Simulated scan of single mutants.
Amino acid sequence: MSGTAEGLARAYAKRWLWKAAAPVAVPVFGVLTLLLIPLAVLAAPEASPAAASSVCSIGGTGATVAGTDLNAVQMGHAQTIVTVAAAQELDPYAATVALATAYQESRIRMLANDGSSPELTAEQAAVTATSLTYPHDGLGSDHDSVNTFQQRWIAGWGTVAQLMDPVYAAEAFYRRLVAVPDWRAMPLTQAAQAVQVSAYGGAYARWEPLARELTAMLWPTTQATAADGSGAAAGVCPDLPVPAGSWIRPTAGTFTSGYGSRWGALHAGVDIAGPRDTPVYAAADGIVVTAACTSAYCDRDGSLSLPGYGNLVELDHGGGVTTRYAHLSAYTVNAGQGVSAGALLGFQGSTGNSTGVHLHFEVRLDGASVDPVPWLADRGVDLHAATAG
């Protein structure tokens, strides 16, 4: 994959892999002293990812395609599949085959597997069940099959950890597709079956109209992003309707870590963790001071050895008040831009010094961090609530 193509794929389809261990983060930005280094702790439990991001995601809002209703989670997975095709310099037909396959196999959802199939040995069942430790939209139980394409680790598609990464899953599908002789000249259902070797090989044809229309809808977005390998992304989600002058909770998800001392340093904000690419909104009216990658790289998840906030948006609200939104998978605003409360800023991710998907959110007064919980509570906002707004 070329550098440009890989940048495109990662810009729109950042990897969803969460660590099974409690994630922590230690962002370092500019000349902040260690006393202001935030340390993020435990990422959100995977309780109900579809519900938490069913309104909008990096893939956009839900849509009706060829008479079929797709929610934002499905649209996000579809965008990943299309983007990976473009990143591998394939044509739209490859994406169409992949989308029809994914809809037949999982309804374009990331499925885990609890290992309950009687076809599995106890050891195989235990390995298969590890898929439950990764973000997923539902459960399947067909042998050891997992993910949007129902790929099998026993059949050599990859490890369970790899297969639960939507980008890897799409890449694996395309690797096998392009190995099929004359696949471009085949009817869609035959090309899909050559990859999947399914017991229901003719079933893919039913979803060809859906897949063609979905590809036509998403391919232009992928092409438009090709020239920009940064963390910037199109603002595909609608802003939240917020009264002027109001403050809001900036994202949906579980409150996982508060403000205060963490292992001898100050965690200078709070952490809210939802599914990857959950929208992040401006907490109040302001001017964008920073919208940039603040680490050595932001085109993939970070690690504890990587300094910085990753993709960071900082807003100036006037009167010495600023807010920071860190570890974003992508951002949708530019420095100098004015935004209203509820404006889309970006999407939850794990860029920079982080090992778990979440939003690290800070409130600062004249540059010094304050606890966002009581500060926003005084303005009628409960950061412990589950939803944005």
Rank of each mutant, 00 (worst) to 15 (best):
A43Y: 09
A43F: 02
A44S: 04
P45F: 12
P45W: 12
P45A: 11
E46I: 14
A51G: 13
A52E: 11
A52G: 01
A52W: 07
S53R: 15
S54E: 02
V55K: 05
V55F: 13
V55H: 05
V55W: 13
C56V: 12
S57T: 15
S57G: 15
S57P: 01
S57Y: 07
G59K: 12
G59Q: 09
T61E: 15
A63Q: 15
A63N: 12
T64K: 12
T64N: 04
A66I: 12
A66P: 10
G67F: 06
T68L: 15
D69I: 11
L70H: 02
L70P: 00
N71S: 13
V73S: 04
Q74S: 06
Q74G: 06
Q74C: 12
M75W: 13
H77E: 14
H77V: 04
H77Y: 15
A78W: 13
A78M: 14
A78I: 11
Q79I: 08
Q79K: 15
T80N: 04
I81V: 15
V82W: 04
V82K: 03
T83F: 12
V84G: 03
V84H: 01
A85P: 02
A85H: 08
A85C: 03
A86C: 13
A86T: 06
A86D: 09
A87M: 03
Q88N: 10
Q88F: 12
E89Y: 10
L90T: 05
Y93V: 13
A94E: 12
T96D: 08
V97N: 00
V97C: 09
A98K: 09
T101F: 08
A102I: 11
A102M: 11
A102C: 10
Q104N: 10
E105Q: 14
E105W: 07
R107P: 02
R107M: 10
I108F: 06
I108D: 07
R109K: 14
M110T: 08
M110K: 08
L111D: 02
A112D: 13
N113V: 00
D114V: 03
D114C: 02
G115Q: 07
S116P: 03
S117M: 00
S117G: 03
S117K: 01
S117T: 01
P118R: 11
P118T: 10
E119N: 09
E119V: 06
L120N: 06
L120R: 04
L120M: 05
A122G: 01
E123I: 05
Q124P: 00
A126Y: 03
V127C: 01
A129E: 02
L132E: 05
T133I: 00
Y134Q: 00
P135G: 05
D137T: 08
G138N: 09
G138R: 11
G138S: 09
G138Q: 10
L139M: 03
S141H: 15
S141F: 09
H143F: 15
H143S: 08
D144E: 00
N147S: 07
N147E: 09
Q150N: 03
Q151P: 14
W153M: 00
W153K: 02
I154E: 00
I154N: 05
